[in-house]
């Protein structure tokens, strides 16, 4: 694998929910245009970590964060950072598909309009391009103005990914994007992740370590709020260096 640039760097990042420390000095580098999977048992802090990468945790007033997260070298927690701009650059896809209760077209067009795209032909062009990128165009091109809620769960999730990429983010955060989907829909999302990494840096939190093994280039293993091991996925799943990682991925605990 050719060496790639560091896109995100979590630098000694700690997070507290009130008194309880949920993340302990996480130092982790996320490489550009690679898929980095974050795995670990429930409550290990993987989703909390992911939400730190676009400042979603600060919506909770009990949360206190120490350390830095650098996006292209710039600390996203600095006062100069515009959170709206940050979230434009760092998009997010959630566990359960959450399309707006509007038409398929509107789900994508809405985000574009609030980001200043006004011209109808331009919006249609981007809607089409995003749906094509997510492999959804052929399935929905004849019913763009039907409700997004009529789509299957897998289609809804791909629509949410299309919505996220329509504003051309640089990083895509995915929080267990397949946990509500059947195996075939899961494979389709995995194929999509594989094709999206040509353009985007992807951080994937998953409770399925098999999924992490299948789709990611790098894997980080979290346990009790600590980063235990990080390395190429191939290495983590064939010869992990830490005993704890080995015990977890071989199913000896967790």
């Amino acid at each position: 694998m050719s060496p790639t640039k560091e896109k995100l760097l979590s630098k000694d990042l700690s997070l507290f929910y009130g008194e309880k420390q949920a993340l302990e000095r996480i130092h982790l580098s996320i490489l550009e245009r690679q898929v980095t999977a974050v795995i670990g048992p429930s409550g290990c802090g993987k989703s909390t970590f992911l939400r730190c990468l676009n400042r979603l945790n600060e919506l909770n007033p009990r949360v206190r964060i120490e350390g830095e997260v650098l996006l292209d070298g710039q600390n996203i927690y600095s006062k100069e950072m515009d959170v709206v701009q940050l979230r434009k650059k760092v998009g997010m896809v959630f566990q359960k598909p959450n399309p707006f209760p509007k038409t398929i077209y509107e789900n994508i067009a809405y985000g574009l309009r609030i980001n200043g795209v006004r011209e109808k032909s331009r919006i249609l062009e981007i809607v089409e391009r995003s749906l094509i990128q997510c492999g959804l165009w052929e399935e929905v091109k004849d019913r763009l103005f039907s409700s997004a809620l009529e789509l299957s769960g897998g289609q809804q999730q791909r629509l949410c990914i299309a919505r996220a990429i329509s504003i051309e983010p640089e990083v895509l955060l995915m929080d267990e994007p397949c946990s509500a989907l059947d195996p075939i829909a899961t494979y389709r999302i995995e194929e999509l992740i594989d094709s999206l990494k040509e353009k985007y840096t992807i951080v994937l939190v998953t409770h399925s370590m098999q999924q992490a093994a299948r789709v990611s280039d790098y894997t980080a293993f979290f346990y009790l709020g600590k980063l235990i091991e990080y390395g190429p996925t191939k290495q983590i799943f064939t010869n992990p260096q830490e005993e704890l990682t080995e015990s977890y991925i071989t199913g000896r605990f967790g």
Partner: peptide, 9 residues
Amino acid sequence: VLELIGTQQ
């Protein structure tokens, strides 16, 4: 072989 068995199920 090891890599494919280990990562691709």
